[in-house]
């Protein structure tokens, strides 16, 4: 436990010292917010689950913060560690793989919280987004969402051998999920095939899980259970498939 907390603290400091990653993680969702914020008239509409567009998109962009950590940040982090020989050094020490993974999950939670709060505050100020209907449920939805994407990120980090591979595949996955999972065009405007594809992606369920209590539709058990399943499968696969070098 002590080792886990120490690793987490050091990793957090390392994250803060890496400006490029920080900007990507925190600024990208804000850019989306401002670009798309001007596109729609901010009146409730059916396409946006009877909500105002920005009330619909703000929780979806919280999902983007989470997805960018899991699909881009973590895979690159692990690939870099592997390429540089950092994983080799950890492997030769008594530290357990669980502590290495656990520290990444905790760091992801902290970063995602900061990024999420930043995004929500900005969109409340700039686009007059309303406060969530059920704030406690939104927070409750946020945690398993981050954990699920951290597990996906660790799995990608375990599988992708080089930084280049991680950058390439991570970004592609991120963009595809972003377009199809509810953070891009509203589902009503997508073709049936696009909508079906979107529903195979974990980000879809993250956005659902956060958006439902935000807009006052309550807790979505289906999405919650799907994300738990994703977490368990990704964690087990990571432990089995992890490559130190």
């Amino acid at each position: 436990m002590r080792i886990l907390l120490k690793m987490t603290w050091i990793e957090l400091k390392l994250f803060v010292r890496e400006p490029v990653t920080m900007v990507f993680t925190f600024a990208l969702p804000l850019i989306f917010l401002f670009v798309l914020g001007g596109v729609f008239q901010n009146i409730p509409s059916e396409e946006f689950r009877d909500a105002k567009p920005m009330d619909y998109y703000t929780p979806a962009y919280v999902g983007l913060v989470i997805a960018s950590i899991g699909l881009v940040g973590l895979p690159i982090h692990f690939a870099k560690y592997r390429e540089r020989g950092v994983l080799r050094r950890f492997r030769a020490s008594p530290i357990h793989l669980w502590s290495i993974f656990g520290a990444q999950v905790l760091v992801s939670l902290i970063i995602a919280s900061v990024g999420g709060i930043l995004l929500v505050v900005v969109s409340m100020i700039a686009f007059d987004v309303r406060f969530p209907e059920s704030p406690a449920l939104v927070v409750a939805a946020f945690v398993p969402s981050v954990v699920a994407f951290a597990a996906i990120g660790i799995l990608l980090g375990a599988l992708l051998p080089t930084t280049r591979a991680a950058q390439g595949l991570g970004l592609i996955l991120f963009i595809v999920m972003l377009m199809l999972s509810g953070a891009g065009p509203p589902p009503e405007l997508m073709s049936e095939a696009m909508e079906k594809t979107g529903q195979t992606m974990p980000l879809f369920y993250v956005i659902r899980l956060i958006q439902d209590p935000w807009l006052g539709y309550g807790w979505d058990w289906d999405s919650f259970l799907i994300l738990i399943g994703v977490t368990v499968v990704a964690a087990l696969a990571s432990l089995r498939l992890f490559r130190w070098e």
């Binding site: 002590r2 120490k6 690793m7 390392l14 560690y81 080799r88 050094r89 030769a92």
Partner: peptide, 19 residues
Amino acid sequence: SALPDRMRVWEALDLFSSF
């Protein structure tokens, strides 16, 4: 082998002795 570039000397020592 290596450790992250931005890690500090004392942090590395502190981490490894906490094992």
